[in-house]
């Protein structure tokens, strides 16, 4: 008898429709703990809707979502406690300082004051914002704000991180710094990552790739497998071939 390890995220048969528009159709995948998974799709593919379902902003009526084995619909408290989220839209309070924003997040996860302060200090140091802790977020650059959001998402030590196009609008250096940081967290702390993007150059060979197009999952597997399946030499070409074939069909 073999025991299958519990998945960090398990999405089974999920569908979702806005009024007059089907956005997701029968989406199923699993992300093992500690795995860096790239959710690849053009704008409008359904990535943000999928994120809204996994974060329970929208109610999942079709299919089921489990985070470390906990059903999001029935055990949402425990499931959301294991989740760190960096949304596509900035969610920092611009009128509060970086420190106040982090404290607020700690409160929203019920952290004790004793454990809050060291974690905040460490998070600010990792984000390179220790000197700017008391500055209002409004005064920070776009890259600094994104680093702060990432630091905030990890404060309660989640085992699964969702990042919805977190590098959009950043310059090349800031973008690379964010990606490196998240990959480091994934490798060092064993945090599972679901990284949504439409930028194919953010995919690495070792990543698990989910290719979402027009609400359907066209491919799931390794990046290398994607190249082999499409007989292409780059993820970009593979992406184009798969989405082109789907549209032709």
């Amino acid at each position: 008898m073999t025991f299958e390890p519990v998945s960090a995220l398990e999405v089974s048969g999920v569908g979702f429709a806005y009024p007059r528009r089907q956005v997701l159709e029968d989406v199923s995948f699993r992300i093992p703990p500690g795995c860096f998974c790239v959710l690849l799709g053009i704008n409008g593919a359904g990535k943000t809707t999928l994120f809204s379902l996994v974060t329970r902003l929208f109610l999942c009526r079709t299919g089921s979502i489990r985070i470390f084995g906990r059903d999001l619909a029935r055990e949402s408290h425990g499931a959301l406690g294991d989740l760190g989220v960096v949304f596509q839209q900035p969610t920092l309070d611009l009128d509060l300082s970086a420190l106040q924003n982090l404290k607020y997040h700690c409160a929203l996860h019920g952290l004790r004051p004793g454990e809050m302060r060291p974690r905040i200090d460490a998070a600010l140091a990792v984000a390179g914002l220790a000197e700017r802790a008391k500055d209002k977020v409004r005064a920070l650059s776009g890259g600094q704000r994104r680093r702060l959001e990432l630091a905030r998402a990890l404060l309660h030590q989640p085992r699964l991180l969702l990042a919805d196009e977190p590098t959009v609008g950043l310059d090349v250096h800031s973008r690379q710094a964010i990606i490196d940081q998240v990959r480091g967290i994934c490798a060092d702390r064993g945090v599972g990552v679901l990284w949504a993007t439409h930028l194919v150059d953010e995919v690495q060979a070792s990543d698990l790739v989910l290719l979402l197009h027009q609400g359907r999952l066209l491919y799931q597997g390794s990046a290398e497998g994607l190249l082999a399946e499409t007989r292409t030499e780059s993820v970009h070409a593979a992406f184009n071939r798969m989405t082109g074939a789907a549209e032709a069909a």
Binding site: R56, L57, H77, T91, L92, H109, G110
Partner: peptide, 18 residues
């Protein structure tokens, strides 16, 4: 509209309590 409401809503506490 600005998105910060999402932060509140993904807290593990019950929504009614938030």
């Amino acid at each position: 509209e600005m998105g910060s409401m999402r932060l509140l809503m993904v807290s593990p506490f019950p929504r009614w309590y938030l």
